[in-house]
Nucleic acid binder design. Structure first.
Lengths: 354, 354
DNA sequence: TTCAGTTTCTGGATCGATTCAGAAGGGATT
DNA sequence: AATCCCTTCTGAATCGATCCAGAAACTGAA
């Protein structure tokens, strides 16, 4: 068996406490004894205090959980999620804290277990809309957490770092509207739960249960309403997943119709790239004639010439982790809305004259 | 304070053991008592056994560490690393195991501490060439580990899942050689430690300390030697980092010379994309006239038309985690070399007639 | 020399669970 | 009624450290 503190203590002929101090409080013993202990430890093959035992006794784990909804493997396919994670890891690194990746199980029953079994001091919750049960479990465990969006059920002590989804969406839709587009389609991932791929009837953008999607659709709607295009006149397209393929699939039928939209506004860059794929596929009749916008400004957006809204992904992660690891004195500072930028590229252009 | 097992036991009037069993061995008590206990727990706000205490007692943590060299934030910028991580997370998920991301500190002294403090049952080590100290620490801790490349100091019990770097590199270099290219440049990240950006003198490919780079350069060299282009005739370019920008920077001077290479073979797709950037920048004299190859086949490679060698990233991660979590009975099965494929796209073409 | 003040080290309590041998009670069997 | 076997529950030991009050030894000043 691996040696323990006690074994080292016995070998040197000192007490367990002293060996412990040799590792975690060098000022509590003489330098000579300390090196003697460290040498003995080396000789015995003792590799330092057991992290688990230390955590138990100290009451602190030294790790933060990053909670991603759905499969972890899925999270990594979303470039924006990766950027968020990058930021979190940077901040955690600075704090000497480890990162525990936690995937939110799809079955409700296992959510609580997943949260309860994670050995962490707190959670960064990457919001995707279906994290309510997880948040309840985190709260029940009494752990601190930070979300990536303000939440309706948030108390004043809840911390988050997000963006103004509505305003950001509105800014890009304003741009599209200013280009003269009036026959437009809005594309989102899982706009309604279990909805099929393709066109969808929504009474209003507020129908979308997912807060991020709702915020963005609302912003889009406002911009078009302002130029006289009311809600019933805009098409809502539902993608069954946040992927290029899903985006392409959702838009294909609409493009094939005899009254295709002149602009498609997607709720994410990945979906928008899918729209571009579908356009390329559809042939010269439409390619480069339908304006397309995304959201997030992921790396591929630039090379694809996609007009989009940039939100600072790494910064979001960095701030979330920092908010978690060193909570601001004033709770009001725990609510952060980051700025966004409209990035106009080549995927948007004037609406064709009808 | 949060209630403990004991508090719940006291509330119900049973022993601590019974409450413990209610959670982890339901068959050890009557269903009635169990629900009574669970109800009491709920009422008291007890959210299940403390994961740390459980780990300590059980001697098992329920998490695997994924060790990335350099900054974690850096790891995420490498699409291939992300794919590897995706695979690892898939396998871990299936095993109900958590993932602890560990960044290898740059200072040697802190490497051991980082390893020793990680509460994990084993490590997946994403090899980048500078992980020797970390591996030593892992071995000293007596933890199992899997690497992503065979290692020179490996014992028969060491597990790894890699590719035949040399053969894979040779396959793509053969392709370039067959196209008639004779004035070629090889581009790698940190070919020699602390080497400056740009051309480098190497006695031979074996001089590169980083095993992956060494393997690839060796394969490249073999292919060209086979067509009469011996080592001194090939240019080696050093990039100071595995990024597009570093790749572009490393190749720029060489392209500007009066005898630019007709083909550049990079050790990674990211570097190769940088070369394409540099070519685009260099103007029409060279663009589309210099052949470029990458390595890995990341997502961007396809859209950039980059000829490259595909290696199965997710599969690598999945296998690495599986090898760690359920070691094969026969140690020989712990050594896996995955197949690679030459993917020819538009970035390579016949050498211009001189 | 004595006493206060440091520095250095020790012992025991504790963190919150799991585990296992065994006690207690209830049936069924003979 | 005695025996044996289950099922259900308990108690004490244990995992491997940290922490704190206090003992022991040493230092310097009066």
């Amino acid at each position: 068996m691996k040696p323990t503190l006690q074994d080292v203590a016995d070998a040197v002929g000192v007490s367990r406490s002293t060996v412990s101090n040799a590792y975690s409080r060098p000022d509590q013993l003489s330098a000579a004894l300390r090196t003697k202990i460290l040498n003995a430890a080396q000789r015995l093959g003792y590799s330092g205090p057991n992290p688990t035992a230390r955590s138990l006794r100290r009451g602190v784990v030294g790790a933060v959980g990053v909670l991603f909804t759905s499969q972890l493997s899925y999270a990594f396919t979303d470039p924006f999620a990766v950027r968020f994670l990058t930021g979190v890891s940077e901040a955690a690194e600075r704090h000497g804290t480890n990162l525990l990746l936690v995937a939110l199980p799809t079955e409700r029953a296992r959510v609580r277990a997943a949260i309860d079994n994670a050995a962490v001091d707190g959670f960064c919750v990457y919001c995707a809309g279906d994290e309510d049960w997880a948040l309840a479990a985190i709260r029940d465990r009494g752990l601190p957490y930070v979300t990536t969006a303000p939440r309706p059920d948030a108390g004043p002590a809840d911390r988050y770092v997000g963006i103004d989804e509505r305003a950001a969406a509105r800014s890009i839709a304003d741009h599209v509207a200013a280009l003269g587009h009036r026959r437009v389609a809005l594309l989102g991932d899982t706009v309604l739960p279990d909805a099929p791929c393709g066109p969808l009837r929504l009474v209003g953008p507020a129908d979308a249960p997912h807060p991020t999607t709702r915020g963005r659709l609302t912003g889009f709607a406002e911009a078009f309403a302002a130029v006289g295009v009311d809600w019933p006149a805009v098409t809502v397209l539902n993608a069954t997943g946040n992927s290029r393929a899903a985006g392409a699939a959702a838009v294909t039928a609409a493009l094939a119709g005899d009254q295709p939209p002149t602009a498609v506004l997607a709720c994410s860059d990945v979906l928008a790239l899918g729209v571009l794929d579908a356009l390329a596929e559809a042939g010269p009749r439409l390619a480069h004639r339908v304006s397309v916008t995304g959201f997030d400004d992921i790396a591929e957006a630039a090379s694809a010439g996609l007009t989009t809204v940039r939100q600072p992904g790494e910064e979001k992660g960095r701030l979330a982790a920092t908010l978690l690891l060193q909570p601001p004195a004033d709770p009001a500072d725990g609510h952060v809305l980051l700025p966004t930028d409209l990035v106009v590229r080549t995927s948007t252009g004037p609406a064709p004259r009808s």
